[in-house]
């Protein structure tokens, strides 16, 4: 934030392996990337090429094995679990599976994205933010519904609301629009674009949707664990 010049994500010489001993296998090779603030970056590549692995490394969900990853000016290599946790609170994650809590309403699930910043927040303000984002995702009528009363696409939109409600500095998404129809999918991307312009939110998204790729500021293509 203070160092306005520094990119939000910078990878240098990142290698990654799965397994150990005989079965140890390298899946990422010498990845170096810089992602600017407020940009929409699309990652693509064939199945098994390492997109998800790279995304989880960038999202501080995995320990960096080799190389350097700097997120918002902070080095991830060797960072403690607690430091990664604090960093992740500044991100928004959109998973392929929505992973909503079945016993929480759309509103409550969304609020979980705000409560991670600890108690003491203004409850009325938080509530207004949750309602606002759910409404802008077309769920204004479903705010107090439990997930079981929502369609697959609606559930995914609640998960997106949960990820975006706290105005994250970086959004990581892995095929987030797979469960949505084309129009809803584009809506999500437009919302991310607006966030990028108004708040400088960076988005890294794995997708094969060509219409989204058309909107991207940067495209990363991975083949067999290497940048292509």
């Amino acid at each position: 934030m203070m160092t306005g010049r520094e990119p939000s994500i910078r990878l240098q010489g990142v290698n990654h392996w799965f397994g150990s001993g005989e079965t140890r296998r390298q899946v990422l090779f010498d990845i170096s990337i810089s992602i600017e603030r407020g940009s929409l970056t699309v990652m693509r590549g064939p199945s098994g090429s390492g997109k998800t692995t790279l995304l989880t490394l960038m999202g501080a969900l995995r320990k960096v094995q080799e190389g350097s990853i700097r997120l918002l000016g902070q080095e991830l290599h060797g960072a403690s679990e607690a430091a990664q946790e604090m960093l992740r609170r500044r991100f928004g994650f959109i998973f392929q599976a929505h992973n909503l809590h079945e016993s929480l309403t759309a509103r409550q699930n969304t609020l979980m994205g705000l409560e991670v910043h600890g108690p003491g927040g203004d409850a009325a303000k938080q509530n207004a933010a949750a309602v606002h984002i759910l409404t802008s995702l077309g769920l204004g009528e479903r705010i107090d519904y439990l997930p079981e009363k929502l369609s697959g696409g609606q559930k995914q939109r609640v998960a997106i609301a949960r990820a975006l409600v706290s105005n994250p500095e970086i959004v990581f998404a892995d095929e987030p629009t797979a469960a949505l129809d084309k129009e809803a999918g584009l809506n999500v991307v437009r919302l991310l674009k607006t966030l990028a312009e108004t708040r400088g939110t960076s988005t890294v998204m794995v997708t094969h949707d060509t219409r989204i790729i058309d909107l991207a500021d940067m495209i990363i293509t991975i083949e067999d664990g290497r940048l292509a």
């Binding site: 999202g59 607690a82 604090m86 992740r88 609170r89 998973f95 992973n99 909503l100 809590h101 079945e102």
Partner: peptide
């Protein structure tokens, strides 16, 4: 039954 939801909380930064 809810291990994925709990993992999601962890991903979101809940300790």
């Amino acid at each position: 039954a809810h291990i994925k939801e709990y993992a999601t909380f962890k991903a979101m930064g809940y300790p």
